[in-house]
Design a protein around this nucleic acid. Structure first.
Lengths: 186, 186
DNA sequence: GTCTATAGACCGATAGAC
DNA sequence: GTCTATCGGTCTATAGAC
């Protein structure tokens, strides 16, 4: 059922240097940015050599993709699901935050170095998401004023996801309410 | 009164390759990010060689500083002015946007590559600003919920500054209102 | 699976001619 | 003020031994 490349012990435990590589890379991508993080940085932190990384990933871009792809797919799936039906702004923003919540680190890495997306083939994802979400939220009007409100709401909610407190349900709700309030301000 | 290094013609007109360098560099910093923009990129766009840039700026960091410093100084000055008196959230957010408005491009460049600030000696400015602004806005409480609201408000307003429409006073006001609404949501 | 060694490209920066 | 040429460094990636 799984097409994992990496080794799994006969007791089912994943020995996996590969997983440690991904975890270390993600942490460094968040703190230093994708392009500012060299394979040597990652290898040094793991106590192996740069060349050893190429056993697990054919190129730096593949390592990055294994981090960003699941997160990108989840957001795209959400936007597809939301597309037809006319959900309320509250429901849309709430679902947006819930989908991004498990991917906070990957989101932070992408916000930290947006150019990484370009190096990874995918045409500017965050811009695409902002446009699709905006279209869902600007129900009737598309005036400049409405665009500002949706931008404050989405941009603010996205920024709020960078705070560790957002894991707390009560704080999460406060972020959703704030974004909705921005959207409905007149 | 001025300590400009560059040449000025006897008719007062600034001939200045230096100004063209700054303008081109800023444009590339916004689109590609500071560290992803090489001096060769800038030189090619200007039709000169990389070495020629070193006549105008002793190092890449100095070129970047000449772009970011005035903008950083203006924001720090605003926060100093705001510090003592108890202005309303509306006044604070409005002043914040007004100060950043003329520096939209520099702000975009800094958001695009936050690591640039580190290379330029200055300890993470946007983080410092967020903390000081947050302290000004979280008047009475400092609960996780209040931190989410201020983050949505400030983060949303900052993101709104990236839209060209923000130059239009009516759209600017809508952004301020949206940020205030996020802050005052309960 | 991990290593040493190196190829090949690009970077910031400098020297020195014009 | 701008050029050519080059230095020393770092980067991704590959070759091949163990």
């Amino acid at each position: 059922m799984s097409d994992r490349t990496s080794a799994t012990g006969r007791d089912g435990r994943t020995t996996d240097t590969r997983q440690r590589v991904v975890a270390t890379a993600l942490r460094l991508f968040v703190t230093k940015g994708f392009s500012a993080t060299s394979l040597k940085d990652i290898a040094d932190e793991l106590g192996i050599t740069k060349a050893a990384l190429y056993y697990h990933f054919p190129a730096k871009a593949d390592l990055a993709r294994s981090i960003f792809q699941p997160f990108i797919d989840d957001v795209d799936d959400l936007l597809d699901r939301l597309d037809g039906r006319g959900e309320s702004p509250r429901e849309i923003l709430s679902a947006y935050i819930d989908v991004l919540l498990p991917h906070r680190a990957a989101l932070a890495a992408m916000l930290r170095d947006p150019g990484a997306a370009a190096d990874l083939d995918l045409t500017d994802v965050s811009g695409r998401w902002l446009a699709r979400l905006g279209a869902l939220l600007e129900t009737d009007d598309a005036t400049p004023e409405a665009r500002m409100r949706t931008t404050v709401a989405i941009g603010g909610a996205t920024r709020a996801l960078m705070l560790p407190e957002v894991e707390d349900p009560s704080a999460r709700d406060a972020a959703v309410r704030a974004a909705v309030a921005a959207l409905e301000s007149r």
